[in-house]
Design a protein around this nucleic acid. Structure first.
Lengths: 216, 216
DNA sequence: AATTTCACCGATAGTACTATCGGTGAAAAA
DNA sequence: TTTTTCACCGATAGTACTATCGGTGAAATT
């Protein structure tokens, strides 16, 4: 058993992390309505009043949560790109595009659940963060699609690419959560579905780029 | 100016409807956290205490909201099926499958926003309703896909159809909200995208039914 | 016309949470 | 060693909301 001879600032930082971790758990289990300074402080093992040593108010805690989440998110995306670059073939890389986010969501489903809630909740302090995150992911998917050989060189095509990316992104989230809820036990099956959906979209983009009509 | 010589029960029913309408507006504008008996009653033009003449408590109001929403939902789905049956061609019918929900969402975006929030919020009284609604819509989409000529006759194929339907449903919601937020001004463009996505999925289903492999 | 019903009212007790305050002891600085 | 700093504490004022109560008058019933 190692003792804990921490400096004051180390101890403070530890408490702060405990608060954030506790907040995340409560947020996931009870929703933003259930997140109170009383519960967070108690779960972190300090007095309710001591909460204010670390955060100006509840809003400030949520802001910190968003910052923390954003940092994790950016790290995860960098890692995903790195992994995808190492894929042996185009096909595998395409599958990675979907497998990696699903894996990531499976590891931290509470983050996605919290984001999906905040995304459409005007009272949520995390709303801006959720909207920004959704945009980042959509653009990520759009870039992946573009990497598969489709270049959008006018307003209409760019909007189409964006819509497809947004749709694919929504489908990815839905299937990842379905996987977490036990309805779709195999991740590879979900990847199959997403690949099939995106193939349809790409086929359409290519054909309509040649002849700018609606699909027949 | 028509006067209002209403019977007592008519007046009570009117007040109840005003409460529900006010609750819906507040729920959309301020989220479930912002929904208080004070605000609902005030918005409906009665005293806060009179709220309890109509509802046992706040939970009861949300239950009523769910019931009301469910009724509207079932009506809208019946109407959608009726309209789709009248479509002149298979292609048009397929487009209708997507156009009709987007139209419906455009008319009442607040309902979808409220549902999407409640869907992943364990503290929400509307959660059960949201989950049930999502299931109904997914099955609706699955039936539509099946109607396009694909029959799932084993466990794997049924699950695939379900996953596709769930993905398509999520994409539909995302694009409909994107349309409401002004990012995708043309509904027909969104329909194009959804048709393309579902075509990819159907193509995959057909090919893998012939030879039960993963897409090459 | 007399009586009953009941939708609505204002007042208020009870509850839960936020945020501030002065105090304490151990770590850090002098 | 002496002094200062500060993370944490318990107590509590202030705020917001829920839900109940007895009272009122007009509609409904008799």
């Amino acid at each position: 058993m190692t003792n804990t001879p921490l400096t004051r600032s180390e101890a403070k930082d530890l408490t702060r992390r405990r608060l954030i971790r506790a907040a995340l758990a409560i947020l996931d289990k009870e929703g933003e309505a259930g997140l109170t300074t009383v519960k967070v402080a108690k779960a972190a093992g300090i007095a309710q009043s001591s909460f204010y040593v670390h955060f100006r108010d509840k809003q400030d805690l949520l802001r910190a949560l968003g910052d923390e989440g954003g940092e994790q998110l950016r790290r995860a995306m960098r890692e995903a790109r790195r992994q995808a670059r190492e894929s042996p073939s185009d096909t595998e890389r395409h599958r990675d595009t979907f497998r990696i986010p699903i894996d990531a969501i499976s590891r931290h489903p509470e983050l996605l659940r919290i984001l999906l809630r905040a995304r459409h909740d005007p009272s949520s302090s995390l709303r801006d963060f959720a909207v920004e995150t959704a945009t980042v992911y959509r653009d990520h998917h759009a870039a992946d699609l573009a990497a598969l050989g489709y270049t959008a060189d006018n307003e209409r095509d760019r909007r189409r690419l964006e819509m497809i990316a947004e749709g694919i992104n929504a489908a990815t989230n839905a299937l990842a959560l379905g996987h977490m809820e036990g309805r779709y036990p195999e991740i590879e099956e979900a990847v199959d579905v997403l690949v099939a959906l995106s193939r349809g979209a790409l086929r359409w983009l290519r054909s309509s780029q040649a002849s700018p009509e609606r699909p027949a």
